[in-house]
Structures are given as structure tokens and as C-alpha cells.
Design a protein around this nucleic acid. Structure first.
Ligand code: MN
Ligand code: MN
Ligand code: ZN
Ligand code: ZN
Lengths: 149, 149
DNA sequence: TGCTAAATGAAAATATTTTTCATTTAGCAT
DNA sequence: ATGCTAAATGAAAAATATTTTCATTTAGCA
């Protein structure tokens, strides 16, 4: 059993949820992709396989997996919600604007900035959203190759 | 003329766009609020006044004002797009999760982090999204007063 | 093996955003 | 000032996204 599947089994059991084929398919689709996927994209990919599950179930499952911390949301300007596999614990995303690949990083180091803002504005800070966008190594290479032609 | 209106006149003229009553109303609704407003909310507020403008025009106008740098988008988990008045230049938001107030700050100081990520992952970083969420001073006070009762 | 609460999915409802196109109007040239 | 024209508007419809409802199925347990 793949480590992601094992996590799913544990997280579901722990919280009184049932392990279903649909839930396994959704998580598998996400963990098989390095990109962030919208509910519609997950649905499409799952249904290309044998399974055929309903879009409503995809929505419900994405919300559940997100709650369990197995996947997390990616925020793109103007785009609809999309999800990617979550490493454990606090982390952030770098997103390739060309191919959609998501890379995680953990040490955001915003403590000092938070403290200063809190002091200066009186806000009590509870959380933050930090994402970088750019071009991944692969897409840069590809652009380089095309320029060479 | 209020400074925001002056900016609007200049930005529109500069770019070959026309100054219309609708555009003034939309910008006014946003600049009159410290909260971030969705298209539907902007529409509602504008139409409470004399004017009565179409929701489609609100959508189009928000996009235009955003392009011109007069307003900017706020990103909330699971919520639909919303906008707030933009100070000039690069900046970020702190958003009160209770009342929706948005406060801006400018010095995000992510250069070092960017450089390290770029070095370690090969990503070429082009931009970032940084938002803090928490409770504004007012909402903390109010909570304090309620606890006192 | 059977029971039951949880999960699923089809359909409908609701919400959000975009497109189309006929009508109006701001800004400019006269 | 007046008329012209490209840009802007708005009503309606279409497209897209998300949620609710409820009858049916099923995972996990006794
Ligand atoms: Mn992540
Ligand atoms: Mn802003
Ligand atoms: Zn890429
Ligand atoms: Zn507040």
C-alpha cells in the first residue's frame, strides 16, 4: 500500500469516516499529479479510469480530505478552487504559471514581520497565506530549447 | 474632487477609457468601505444610492479598475473574488476575519526567502501572494467589552 | 450474515461569471 | 453648440461553478 493510501486509511478510521473506493480514487488522482487540480479536473481524471464517480462526491471528498489535512487548496488569481497533495504540517506553495506544477516549502519565517505588523497596527494575527508564482526549472529549460531552434 | 476621483479621471484619460457615472459609482462604493466587497456587494451598495447600474457593468468595471491599479483583489479561502481600494505600488493585506476590514502594508521583505527558494528549487520567481488574517483592534476591543458584561 | 448510520449520485436549485447584441453616451471633430 | 462614432452599458441568455435534496447503496460493525 502506498504511503498516501496508508495515511488515508488511518485518517479516516481515526475520525469515524468510512474508507470508500471513491475516496481512494480522488486521493489517488491528486497524488498522481504534480499540478493542482480543480474539482472538475479530478472528476475527469477519476472517471477516465474504471471507476465513474459523481461530481458531487468529488466536491464532498475534496472538502473532507482537506479537513483531514491530506490535501490543501491552492489560490490562483481569478481561478476557481483547486487542490494539491499536502505534506504534513505548515507549508506553502510555489506554483509554475506555465505548467501548474506545485512545489512545497515549509520555512516561511514570517515571525518577525508578523510581530512588527501586530505592534504597528494592533491586529492580532492568526494565520497567513503565502504563495510564490513563477516558472519551474522544466519550463525554463523548455523555453531555452525553443529559443535555440 | 476627492483624491480617488482625481486618480480615476487621470487613469481613465491616460488609457483612452471614458469617464462614466457607473465607473465613478463603483469606485466610490469601494473607497467608502474599509471592507473588501464582492461584485454582488458593490452592485447592491451602488444601487442603494440613486444610480441603478447593471451587475455586468460592475463586473466589467471591477476588472478595469483593477487593471488600472485603483483597486485590488483580496483572496479568502473558499470565498468568491472581492476587491478593496489599492494604495499605489506593491503592497499586501491584513484582513480581519470578524468584520472584513482590510489594512495594507508595503514592506513584505521576502527577498531573502525568494532567493533561497530559487536557489534550492530552480524556480524562477516572478511574484508572490501574501495575506495575513486575524482580528483588527476594534474587534478585539469589542470582544473584550462583551466578556466584561 | 444482517443491521444501520454514513456515503453516494441523479436531479434540481442556487450562485457566480461570461457572452451576446441592441441601445445609449462620452469625448472628440467640426 | 452639434453631430459623429467608437466605447460603454444593460437586459437576457448562456456558461460555469457549487450546494441541496432525497432515494438508494454500502462500509463497518454486532
Ligand atoms: Mn500544499
Ligand atoms: Mn490592497
Ligand atoms: Zn512549469
Ligand atoms: Zn475587525
Amino acid at each position: 500500500m502506498r504511503p498516501t493510501e496508508r495515511k488515508l486509511t488511518l485518517a479516516l478510521g481515526h475520525n469515524g469516516y468510512k474508507l470508500t473506493a471513491q475516496r481512494r480514487s480522488v486521493l489517488k488522482a491528486i497524488s498522481n499529479s504534480h499540478e493542482h487540480l480543480t474539482p472538475a479536473e479530478v472528476h475527469e481524471r477519476v472517471n477516465q479510469e474504471n471507476s465513474k464517480i459523481g461530481l458531487v462526491t468529488v466536491y464532498r471528498t475534496l472538502e473532507l480530505l482537506s479537513e483531514l489535512g491530506l490535501i490543501c487548496q491552492v489560490h490562483r488569481e481569478g481561478k476557481s478552487q483547486s487542490y494539491t497533495l499536502a505534506p504534513s504540517g505548515h507549508h506553502h506553495h510555489m506554483i509554475c504559471s506555465e505548467c501548474g506544477t506545485v512545489a512545497d516549502f515549509t520555512d516561511c519565517d514570517l515571525g518577525e514581520l508578523e510581530a512588527r505588523l501586530s505592534r504597528e497596527t494592533g491586529f492580532e494575527i492568526e494565520g497567513h497565506l503565502l504563495e510564490f508564482s513563477g516558472r519551474c526549472g522544466d519550463c525554463q529549460e523548455q523555453a531555452g530549447r525553443n529559443a535555440d531552434d
